[in-house]
Amino acid sequence: MIEKKDIEHLAKLSRIELTESDNQGLTKDIESILGYVDQLKEVEADLTEKKAGENRNVLREDENPHESGIHTKDILKEAPSTEDNFIKVKNIL
């Protein structure tokens, strides 16, 4: 059973601010979605070996970087707030 406080907790973990009406709709919707996917319980499966799945990234060496700074201007242009050659955020500490 999903309750309003569960949705609030999930929203907090997901960094999403919800309005009161968002929350009401989501409680009902997520309850019904989880109710639907619960049929997975019918399937027998061995979970001793937990897997990430067949499709996984193959890491490569971080080598031969492109020339420094060639994309900087384009990328910074998309950031909501910048200062010199940096993306600007509010104080963290």
């Binding site: 999403i16 968002d22 919707d29």
Partner: peptide, 17 residues
Amino acid sequence: RGEGLGAEVKRRVLVGT
């Protein structure tokens, strides 16, 4: 994220979490 993401996206992010 509260303002920018739509209802279905929020649903899926929360279910995923």
